[in-house]
């Protein structure tokens, strides 16, 4: 499998990274050489092998349903590039 320029652009858009023509070309080369290299995994027989879900075998601990966090709206927004009162502000979204 190999990627073409259009695919690079499509992935970049999915990842929300704008990409110049020149960068897209460079990326195309890099991605293809990496993909070609990882292609060697196809030699490995994985029939009947379960994909790894977690390297540590243990049960997921669950917490009790109690309110133990929150209540600091100011701390939530103060690092934001734009906020008003305690709302985050973003360029208008049209649904």
């Amino acid at each position: 499998m190999s990627v073409d320029l259009a695919t690079v652009r499509h992935i970049a858009h999915l990842a929300r990274i704008s990409i110049s023509d020149e960068d897209a070309k460079n990326m195309e080369g890099d991605l293809n050489s990496i993909l070609e290299w990882v292609e060697q995994l196809s030699e490995v027989d994985t029939d009947g092998v379960e994909p790894m879900t977690s390297v540590v075998h243990m049960e997921m601990k669950k917490r009790d349903d109690v309110v133990s966090d929150g209540g600091y709206a100011e701390k939530i927004v103060h690092n934001a590039p734009a906020y008003e009162e305690t709302f985050f502000m973003v360029p208008k979204v049209i649904e």
Binding site: H13, R16, I17, S18, I76, V77, N79, A80, P81, A82, F88, V90, P91, K92, V93, I94
Partner: peptide, 19 residues
């Protein structure tokens, strides 16, 4: 993504801002 912390580069719309 430029919304809650860190760098934001303004764009024409939200997607442009993200990208």
């Amino acid at each position: 993504d430029g919304v809650r912390y860190g760098l934001r580069v303004e764009g024409d719309d939200i997607i442009d801002m993200y990208e």
